[in-house]
């Protein structure tokens, strides 16, 4: 198998399970599962055979309730956790011919440093809070082989400038920043190596509305300017409506609906999506 034409990221039959699985639940037959949980062997299927394609320059939204497997999907793509089975191909990595889930740890780290950027919901996950902001961005540059202090500080400063961090705070630690600023430092860090793909996990959750707008503006600007493809996970439909062209709806580790964002939100087909859209205030 290889990437579909034009897709920068192609995911096929991706599964992440917690537990060994048993004969009864191996085929993920709904009759044997309680939502995504097998009562027989106590296995949870966080992501149950997902397939999706992310195209160049597009923002793909992923919505779903808590526990639907959205974050697990991103964490596995960024190799924070190991995928249980399935295949993923990156157009930019070995011409999309190699399943990145089965690569060595060294290669996975390479992919992380050169092909992916990740912004976590909680900045404590993505940043070293006791290191300077510039140092945080340099970490990713160093990991990608950067050995020139001047070049790295220059790059880090220009990125921090882009995300609107005032220069007099460049050397301060993110621990002293507000939540919105921490999130922007994370975005700068994720962008540091010009990755073709950005993974964004609930990046505006917990921020107040004006700061949310600022972060979303930033993301939209980056996408327009740099044509980076993004996978945006959120349970906030307003965020998805603003950012994403295409949307996937997840429930219990499965994709229950997908299509153009407008179409999914205006004319939802699956009962869960209908409930979701209707519960929007």
């Amino acid at each position: 198998m290889e990437t579909n034409e034009g897709a920068v990221l192609s995911l096929q039959n991706f599964r992440k399970q917690f537990g060994s699985g048993c004969e009864k639940c191996a085929d993920l037959d709904e009759r044997h599962l309680q939502r995504n949980y097998c009562p027989n062997c106590r296995t949870t299927y966080a992501c149950a055979d997902l397939s999706l394609d992310l195209y160049g320059g597009e923002i793909l939204g992923v919505v779903g309730e808590s526990g639907s497997g959205k974050s697990t999907l991103l964490r596995c793509l960024y190799f924070d956790e190991e995928a249980s089975s399935g295949e993923a191909f990156l157009q930019g990595y070995k011409s999309g011919q190699v399943n990145i889930f089965t690569e060595t740890g060294q290669q996975k780290r390479y992919i992380r440093n050169y092909h992916l950027g990740m912004v976590y919901q909680n900045p404590y996950m993505g940043l070293r809070m006791s290191f300077s902001s510039i140092g945080n961005i340099a970490e990713k540059l160093i990991a990608a082989g950067g050995r020139s202090v001047d070049a790295m500080t220059g790059r880090a400063a220009s990125l921090l400038h882009k995300v609107d961090i005032p220069p007099y705070r460049f050397l301060e630690t993110p621990a002293t920043f507000s939540g919105g600023m921490q999130q922007r430092v994370q975005i700068a860090k994720a962008l540091s190596n010009n990755p073709p793909i950005l993974l964004l996990d609930e990046i505006t959750t917990g921020l107040d509305l004006s700061v949310q707008a600022k972060v979303l503006d930033l993301i939209k600007g980056i996408q327009r300017e740099l044509r980076i493809s993004m996978l945006v996970v959120s349970h906030d439909l307003a965020v998805i409506r603003m950012l994403a062209e295409r949307t996937i709806v997840m429930l219990d580790g499965k994709i229950v609906e997908q299509g153009l964002t407008d179409q999914v939100l205006e004319d939802p087909q699956h009962p869960y999506t209908q409930k979701l859209v209707q519960s929007l205030l």
């Binding site: 740890g105 060294q106 290191f131 340099a138 160093i142 990991a143 202090v149 790295m152 500080t153």
Partner: peptide, 22 residues
Amino acid sequence: KRLHAEKEYSGVWLSLFEQIMK
């Protein structure tokens, strides 16, 4: 240990970089 095995020494370099910043 895993980082040693994979010759991944960004952390050491980062410590030095941070000293230069400070």
